[in-house]
Write a protein that binds this DNA or RNA. Structure first.
Length: 672
DNA sequence: CTGGCGCCTATTTTT
DNA sequence: TAGGCGCCAG
């Protein structure tokens, strides 16, 4: 397949900063992969000096694969394709001295940070979950906005904020003591370093001759700053994005970064990709009309040459059960008529809880389905245990890891001992492991408990030496044997079966670890520390083969559907209060909900069905929701309302139209 | 392993 | 209100 004009332009323009506004289904992945190939082949830039950044590991993996296909393994060697976080991690890895952390640092995931915050605020917040979550997200937001605790304390704050700012400082201090970084640090630290240290900055600017960023509309402040620092004055980069698909602002994404880019790089070349290769003309027309209700910085209009296609159908159900029944019935009839496969269908919804009834009904009809989201592998106790051991081997100051494993399997180190040990560590201002090795330990803990502790610490140190020096994987296997973990599993599990499953999970984990330690053609071998950190970032093959090509109906949230496509799509729960969600209505933030709807619509290739209920149970009571305003925003000639009086819909349309415009005005005036 | 009781929570989630 | 989950007893 040849590239179209826009795509060609986007690939060939390399003389300056470049923004590719890539509409849904316009072939942006092709552009990125072809551009990388172009840079290597035509411009003679070695692959190792090109970096491509994505948001998810899945996207990175896919891009790597596609480039490998286009360029061939030889030419693609050394190409850096990674997520923002992995890229940050690799900068930190080579610059950790300048950042002020020790080698062998740990990564804390959000469970770890939560438990750390819980400990730090025990007296003040007393485990108040809501407050803790709030605190956690505040800290994350501050970090994403490049605000440090010291700066925060200088700002005028409300009493509540003052308290939180203090926790933030405390939190950072403790992270340092544990020699640990959280996910946000993976961006924040490199950004601060590159900003303040010219030598390092120049070094990395020379290392990365060309930078590509995918899903640019999802970048937050610190990520954009990192991009700016990396590209420097030369500004040799391409970012690809679509402001209409920005659906993560609730998580810190700043779609305004698209505008900033134009201001920060006046020479910015703007290229629009408007030809869609995915959907029928009618589906696109509906999407275009809908999204026109949002204000735009860059105007964009998608078109398609795939024919106009079927009318979009709006199915009206009595209640939720009926809605699920209707979808299943419609799907089966459709499948029979068109002789399609289950995997050609997707059911998209706003909130995870909506999946339940569909799942129930699909199951009772023996229809294979897959609900995406929720990868529970790393939630398994045994996997967490082993991961904690590995973390401890790499970094003994990782208190979370230590606390998890110090008495698993049972080693006679009970709660009382741990409390003493904990307060001793607090007193010394060091990690628990350090405290456990402290010569004065006997002043706090004596007798058997002390013996158990020093036995444990010696064992860990020895293991750690073995694992880092010699053959990593066999050292780990030895470790499992030495602590009789398997026996302990069989004893402590409720059934032998459960223990067997647990062991199977552990061998899966071991498989990944040894693969990563050994490396392959595309990925170089890693050290144990690298492996552990990668696993915490969940950067692995996931269950790729298992269900990849399986013939299953796809169920997922609208958020999870971004980037995917399906021949036939059901968007369910098209009701005021659900889509747009009530909280978004309350906060007058329906633009993002409209984009979410836009994302959903543009997933469909051939046919699109909407469903809604006349009645729905909510918090115990039965409500009668209005059809979603977005349904009225669609061109009514292209949609077909099921048994609904024409007059009726026209009336409501008019009403809705008014409020829609009023809202838009509000948004426009409040936005500026 | 199972059933029952009581508690919690109802928007999206990656790294 | 209902469903999910953890905990405990049998």
């Amino acid at each position: 397949m040849k590239l179209n004009d826009g795509q060609n332009q986007a690939v060939n323009y390399i003389s300056g900063p470049c923004l590719v506004l890539a509409g849904a289904g316009s072939g942006k992945t092709r552009v990125i992969t072809n551009k990388i190939a172009y840079l290597v082949r035509e411009c003679g830039i070695p692959a190792r000096q090109i970096a491509a950044v994505t948001f998810t590991n899945k996207a990175a993996r896919e891009m790597k694969e596609r480039v490998g296909q286009t360029l061939g393994k030889k030419e693609a060697r050394g190409l850096k394709v990674s997520t923002f976080h992995t890229m940050g991690l690799s900068i930190i890895k080579s610059e950790f001295r300048s950042i002020g952390i020790k080698a062998g640092f740990s990564l804390f995931d959000d469970k770890d940070t939560f438990s750390l915050l819980k400990d730090l605020t025990e007296e003040t917040l007393d485990g108040d979950k809501e407050q803790l979550f709030l605190l956690q997200s505040c800290i994350s937001n501050w970090k994403n906005d490049l605000i440090l605790p010291e700066q925060l304390q200088k700002q005028a704050l409300s009493p509540g904020e003052v308290e939180f700012a203090k926790f933030y400082l405390d939190y950072q201090t403790h992270l340092r003591a544990y020699n640990a970084l959280d996910f946000d640090d993976l961006i924040l630290m490199p950004t601060l370093l590159l900003k303040s240290n010219e030598t390092v900055r120049t070094k990395w600017q020379n290392k990365i001759k060309y930078l590509l960023v995918d899903e640019y509309q999802d970048t937050n402040t610190s990520q954009y700053e990192l991009v700016r620092l990396l590209v420097g004055e030369r500004a040799r980069f391409t970012v690809v994005g679509d402001d209409d698909q920005s659906i993560y602002s609730w998580r810190g994404a700043r779609p305004q970064n698209l505008v900033l880019l134009k201001e920060d790089f006046p020479a910015l070349k703007l290229i629009k990709l408007e030809q869609n290769y995915r959907s029928s003309g009618r589906i696109l027309h509906c999407a275009n009309i809908l999204i026109q209700n949002n204000p735009h910085v860059f105007e964009k209009k998608l078109f398609s040459e795939l024919g106009y296609g079927e009318t979009l159908k709006i199915i009206i159900a009595k209640n939720e059960e009926h809605e699920a029944e209707r979808v299943v019935a419609e799907l089966l009839a459709h499948k029979f008529m068109k002789n399609t496969q289950y995997k050609d269908y997707a059911v998209l919804y706003r909130g995870n809880h909506q999946s339940r009834l569909f799942e129930k009904l699909l199951m009772s009809n023996r229809i294979p389905y897959k609900i995406s989201g929720g990868m529970s592998f790393f939630g398994r106790a045994e996997v967490k245990d082993i991961m904690a051991y590995l973390r401890l081997l790499v970094n003994q100051d990782d208190d979370n890891a230590l606390l998890r494993v110090i008495n698993t399997p049972t080693r006679g180190i009970g709660r009382v001992t741990l409390e003493k040990l904990g307060s001793f560590a607090n007193q010394l201002g060091c990690s628990i492991f350090e405290a456990a090795c402290h010569p004065q330990l006997h002043s706090v803990i004596t007798g058997k408990a002390q013996q158990h502790i020093s036995h444990f610490t010696r064992w860990i140190v020895e293991l750690s030496d073995n694992a880092t020096r010699g053959d990593g994987i066999s050292a780990i296997r030895d470790m499992i044997k030495a602590m009789q973990y398997e026996e302990w599993l069989y004893e402590s599990s409720t059934s032998p079966k459960a223990a067997e499953m647990a062991m199977a999970n552990i061998s899966t984990l071991f498989g990944w670890i040894s693969d990563m330690l050994e490396g392959n053609e595309l990925d170089p071998p890693m050290t144990l520390q690298e492996v552990v950190n990668r696993l915490i970032l969940r950067d692995m093959m996931e269950r790729s083969e298992e269900e990849e090509g399986a013939d299953q109906v796809q169920l997922m949230t609208l958020h999870a559907s971004k980037g995917l496509e399906f021949p036939y799509v059901f968007m369910v729960g098209m009701e005021e209060g659900l889509l747009p969600h009530q909280s978004s209505i309350d906060e007058n933030n329906i633009e993002e909900e409209r984009r979410l709807t836009y994302v959903g619509i543009t997933r469909a290739q051939q046919e699109l069905f909407f469903t809604l209920c006349k009645e729905r149970r909510q918090y115990g009571e039965v409500i009668q929701p209005e059809p979603s305003r977005f349904l009225y925003e669609l061109p009514q000639d292209d949609v077909e309302w099921e048994h609904k009086k024409v007059k009726d819909s026209a009336e409501v349309r008019q009403q809705k139209g008014k409020t829609g415009i009023a809202n838009l005005r509000n948004i426009l005036s409040s936005g500026k």
